[in-house]
Design a protein around this nucleic acid. Structure first.
Lengths: 247, 247
DNA sequence: TACACAGTTTCATAGAATGAAACGAGGGAA
DNA sequence: TTCCCTCGTTTCATTCTATGAAACTGTGTA
């Protein structure tokens, strides 16, 4: 209980204001105040500061706030030359062309996963994958890969998180992860999203540590369980090669 | 002098810390403190807050700080469906294929310009253009377009900015902008960067207001003044069509 | 062993961030 | 028109919070 905070409250609040802009791109001042539970005048000052530094701007037409271009500038400096999302892009495109479905790359960020790269299927009916989205670690093929092939402490922390859904029974889930680690890949069928399915395999770097999860996803009527198992070998092999490519 | 500040100091400082990560992606704590002119312990607290919210992370190997994936998440929500950088991408690719050089899209952000979209030339020797970079409004073809075709108050503000270089004489520059407005396009030859040249034309929306500058750039031995003038008509026409496409 | 340097923690104090309240400015509705 | 209702802005007294000096830890190096 005595969790000594070494953080700055005003900054925390400002970052919470910024984080509002994930999911909804246009916010009014009072709307944000209600969302975070702060007083209007506080939010007003925070937004003024964020605007001054170019992190948010006001849409001239609607008078509402949206993200500023400083975010774009920062995101340009997010990845280095040796970043998986850059290095592995050609391999992902090759796999997409081979299988014909959308290919994504996920990494774990605390108790969530983030899609750091995606190449879209060119098929008419396809899964559209946005780079940058955050998804829970409790469901989905690549979630299970990210938990199965990392240190056990990682999955323990994830399952201890308050966001962990009670519907996912922990002991059963752990057994599932054990199977996946043996088999070398994970699948999901209409698990997180109705009508969608995915196969995922671990990308393990030269040091032997898990780096990311490679996932192939598509509509569940094309990616039936049988089809997914047919693709599994190719996906695992691609993931293995990608791991070797990393420093 | 009595400029009443309506901003929050702690937040300003935190955002300045974040802004350090444009240009250099790895920083140590003391390094940042020296850069911004703050005490170590202050920066320590700010970084702890930024890290807590996922805006920065510590590189496990180097123990230094780098940007966190929350920035990626925010940048995913930066653009809407009607965003020029999304809507105009196909047109930009078409122009790139027609001319064979890198095509960029710039917008003005206060007294700077930002490259919000780019499609690369496939030629071996080419200009590589990073999306998100900030450049001065005082030099370069698209700078001149952004100032020539916007409200005169914009160019006045830009020239009054302390960052405006003394080497660019103001009255001469204004005359140059007048010529560009008549001609309909601007060029630059080894102006900002040695060995590089560019042609730029304004993208004007249906409302008649300047939205962005379209630029074609490449090595100055390929994009000679003559070649650039030959391309000008096609670029202006492409920009005109792109303007019509916007809401 | 001593030194230098990066990061962490503590703590008294100043002053900065806060939020209640009042204010101004549209925008509908009647 | 007039009357709300809501949104954003500004003010200001109060207190709690951010601050920075200093001490401390740890790691690498001369």
């Amino acid at each position: 209980m005595e969790e000594e905070k070494r953080t700055v409250r005003a900054v925390e609040r400002a970052l919470d204001v910024l984080s509002c802009f994930t999911g909804k791109s246009e916010w009014g001042l009072s709307e944000i105040a209600a969302q975070i539970g702060l007083h209007k005048s506080t939010v007003h000052r925070l937004l003024a500061t964020l605007e001054d530094r170019g992190f948010v701007i006001r849409d001239e037409a609607t008078e509402k706030y949206r993200l500023g271009l400083r975010i774009l500038e920062l995101s340009a400096n997010l990845s280095r030359e040796d970043d998986p999302s850059v290095v592995l892009l050609p391999d992902m495109e090759r796999l997409r062309d081979e299988i014909g479905e959308t290919v994504s790359l996920y990494v774990r960020d605390r108790n969530e996963r983030v899609r750091i790269q995606a190449v879209q299927s060119s098929q008419a009916i396809r899964r559209v994958a946005t780079v940058g989205v955050r998804l829970p670690l409790s469901v989905g093929a690549s979630s299970k890969v990210l938990l199965a092939f990392d240190d056990p402490s990682v999955r323990n922390a994830a399952m201890a998180d308050p966001s962990w859904p009670a519907s996912v029974e922990k002991d059963k889930f752990i057994r599932q992860l054990d199977e996946i680690r043996e088999r070398g890949y994970a699948t999901s069928f209409e698990e997180r999203e109705p009508g969608a399915a995915a196969v995922s395999a671990p990308i393990i770097g030269r040091s032997g540590k898990l780096v990311a999860a490679l996932a192939v996803s598509g509509p569940s009527n094309r990616l039936t369980p049988d089809v997914m198992h047919d693709h599994a070998a190719a996906i695992m092999e691609a993931a293995r090669r990608m791991g070797q490519r990393l420093g």
